[in-house]
Simulated scan of single mutants.
Amino acid sequence: MTQIDSASDDRTTNNAVRHKYRTLTDAEKIQMQDIKDMGATFIAKLHEIGGTDSTSDRFASRDLSLANTHVEDAVMRAVRHITS
């Protein structure tokens, strides 16, 4: 499968839901990357404190799994704000 960088202006080519995008400014692209990096760092910390493999989707407890879900949701919503 072809991968497209989330900050690329070509990000619309594999999206079946949102049919029109606006071009992001360079500042917005940086904000989006920063938010995603923060989310990835937080998720890595969840794996660290649970003693699980960071390449796995499995967490040491239900609480850490829920924390992961909420981090993913927070990142998605922040990115939606930036890109809308």
Results as ranks from 00 to 15, higher is better:
Asn68Glu: 06
His19Ser: 11
Gln31Val: 06
Asp5Phe: 09
Thr13Lys: 15
Asp34Pro: 00
Met1Trp: 08
Arg62Ile: 00
Ala7Thr: 12
Thr41Ala: 15
Ala74Met: 14
Lys45Asp: 11
Ala7Gln: 06
Thr41Tyr: 12
Asp57His: 12
Ser6Leu: 14
Asp73Ser: 15
Ser8Met: 04
Ser54Ile: 15
Asp37Ala: 12
Asn15Ile: 12
Thr55Tyr: 06
Thr52Trp: 03
Lys20Ile: 05
Val79Thr: 15
Phe59Val: 06
Ile4Val: 14
Asp53Gly: 00
His47Leu: 10
Asp63Met: 04
Ser56Val: 14
Ala40Val: 08
Gly50Met: 07
Asp10Glu: 15
Gln3Trp: 14
Ala16Tyr: 08
Lys45Phe: 15
Asn15Leu: 08
His19Gly: 10
Met32Gln: 09
Gln31Asp: 08
Thr41Gln: 13
Ile30Gly: 00
Met32Val: 11
Leu46Glu: 03
Gly51Pro: 04
Ala7Gly: 07
Leu24Arg: 03
Lys45Glu: 11
Val71Ala: 05
Glu48Met: 09
Thr13Arg: 15
Arg77Leu: 11
Lys29Asp: 03
Gln3Met: 14
Asp9Glu: 11
Ile4Tyr: 02
Gly50Leu: 11
Thr69Pro: 01
Asp5Met: 05
Thr23Asn: 11
His19Met: 08
Asp73Val: 14
Asp5Thr: 07
Met38Ser: 10
Asp9Asn: 09
Thr12Ser: 06
Leu24Ser: 01
Phe59His: 03
His19Pro: 03
Lys45Met: 15
Ile82Tyr: 03
Asn68Arg: 15
Thr83Pro: 00
Thr83Gly: 01
Thr55Lys: 15
Ser61Glu: 03
His19Asn: 10
Ala40Leu: 11
Ser84Phe: 14
Asp63Cys: 01
His47Asp: 03
Thr12Pro: 00
Thr12Arg: 11
Ile35Asp: 01
Val17Leu: 05
Asp63Asn: 04
Asp63Phe: 01
Thr23His: 09
Gln3Arg: 13
Arg18Trp: 03
Asp5Asn: 12
Lys20Ala: 07
Phe59Met: 12
Lys20Asn: 06
Glu48Asp: 10
Asp10Gln: 12
Lys29Leu: 02
Arg11Asn: 04
Thr2Leu: 12
Lys45Trp: 14
Ile35Trp: 02
Arg58Leu: 15
Arg22Ile: 06
Asp53Trp: 06
Asn14His: 08
Asp26Arg: 07
Ile30Thr: 11
Val79Cys: 15
Met32Asn: 02
Asp73Leu: 15
Asp10Leu: 12
Ala78Lys: 13
Ser65Leu: 08
Asp34Ser: 14
Asp5Gly: 01
Thr25Cys: 05
Val17Pro: 00
Thr41Leu: 08
Ser6Pro: 10
